[in-house]
């Protein structure tokens, strides 16, 4: 059993590209659900909008990569408006169904073969972020790895992480400032009771729309950084399961807290890679044949365990600790949603 590998995996993943990307997506969702009470089941749609905004700018329009970041933001804003204007008057569960339907529609549309020249259809778009990696301050020939303590990252990933975590810090800061402001107070009031907010003269609809746009754009940044890091965008990576992974992360950290998405993402990615690497190692030991015989567990399906665990975690957290693993019980008692 290679404990060194297990811990290297755990710590590297906990602060790696994935943790950064999902922290961003979760900051967005936390603004939607945690602060405004919007049941957004289509956060992955915003990630897709941001990702395709960048990739299509380079691939289809042949424009500058950096312009693509702006286009990605515009895509997210437009998506939020298209989604929000007609549906934010609907009941919460209808909004949930509508947003998941919208995110699936986006996936189906970009993978449509008729869009091959624009989105690359099912195969997606590759190698569009050279301009980004041209600026890599950690550049090493052959994209070799850096190692320190328990961490190990490829040169390109390190560059994405540096930029990405700065974006995360910036978004957390914005989030913190907004939530402590009167604007954030109105959002929380809408989450608690929309009618009460309206009776006090707050245009709940407008605030919900603003929250949807803000959270959507932040989610879009997550999508952009994800596809930039891989230099590849593919429609099927934006499936609804991703949205619910983001939900799990938000709930791990505790719904409606500024730090929860970041903490949740680090914990999730750290723990899940600890478990999976441990399992992989365990399969490699003498216990392997027995695991296969009694649990049907082998190197072939060990990765599916990741989803089994996070599905179960989502259930149990929502049931027993919707206030997050660090939240207090008193707070939960007040949660009358």
């Amino acid at each position: 059993m290679n404990w060194d590998l297990i811990f290297t995996q755990m710590f590297s993943q906990a602060f790696g590209v994935n943790a950064m990307v999902y922290a961003l997506a979760a900051i967005g969702l936390n603004i939607h659900f945690g602060y405004t009470g919007l049941l957004n089941f289509g956060q992955v749609g915003f990630m897709a909008a941001g990702a395709y905004g960048v990739a299509m700018t380079v691939f289809w329009l042949n424009w500058n990569f950096w312009l693509g970041i702006g286009i990605g933001v515009i895509f997210c804003v437009v998506l939020a408006l298209i989604l929000g204007v007609p549906t934010l008057r609907l009941r919460a569960d209808y909004l949930g169904i509508t947003t998941i339907a919208a995110s699936e529609s986006i996936r189906l549309f970009v993978r449509w073969r008729g869009n091959r020249e624009r989105t690359g259809a099912a195969e997606g778009i590759n190698d569009f972020a050279d301009s980004f990696f041209a600026l890599n301050v950690f550049d090493k020939p052959g994209n070799e790895s850096y190692q320190f303590l328990f961490f190990e990252y490829r040169a390109n990933d390190l560059w994405v992480m540096l930029v990405g975590w700065i974006v995360v810090a910036f978004c957390v800061l914005i989030n913190w400032q907004l939530i402590r402001s009167p604007w954030g107070r109105v959002l929380k009031a809408i989450r608690e009771d929309e009618d009460a907010a309206r009776s006090l003269g707050k245009n709940a609809y407008s605030y919900k729309l603003q929250a949807l746009v803000l959270g959507g754009v932040i989610g879009g940044f997550g999508g952009m950084l994800q596809v930039i890091s891989k230099q590849s965008v593919q429609p099927d990576t934006f499936n609804p399961v991703i949205t619910f992974l983001i939900w799990t992360i938000v709930i791990i950290g505790g719904v409606g807290k500024v730090w929860s998405p970041v903490v949740g993402s680090i914990i999730y990615w750290g723990l899940i890679s600890l478990m999976i690497t441990f399992m992989r190692e365990l399969i490699g030991t003498g216990a392997g044949p027995n695991l296969d015989r009694f649990l049907n567990l082998s190197i072939l399906n060990v990765d599916q365990l990741r989803f089994v665990i996070f599905g179960g975690a989502l259930m149990l957290l929502m049931w027993f600790r919707p206030q997050g693993i660090f939240g207090s019980r008193e707070e939960m008692a007040l949660d009358d949603r």
């Binding site: 107070r185 929380k188 009031a189 989450r191 608690e192 009771d193 009618d195 009460a196 907010a197 309206r198 009776s199 006090l200 003269g201 707050k202 245009n203 709940a204 409606g256 707070e331 007040l334 949660d335 009358d336």
Partner: peptide
């Protein structure tokens, strides 16, 4: 929400205190 600006405000039968504020 515009009526509040016009000087009319209401309360509700089922009290709408905003619990987590």
């Amino acid at each position: 929400h515009k009526l509040a600006a016009k000087g009319m405000v209401r309360t509700f039968q089922l009290t709408k205190a905003l619990s987590r504020l």
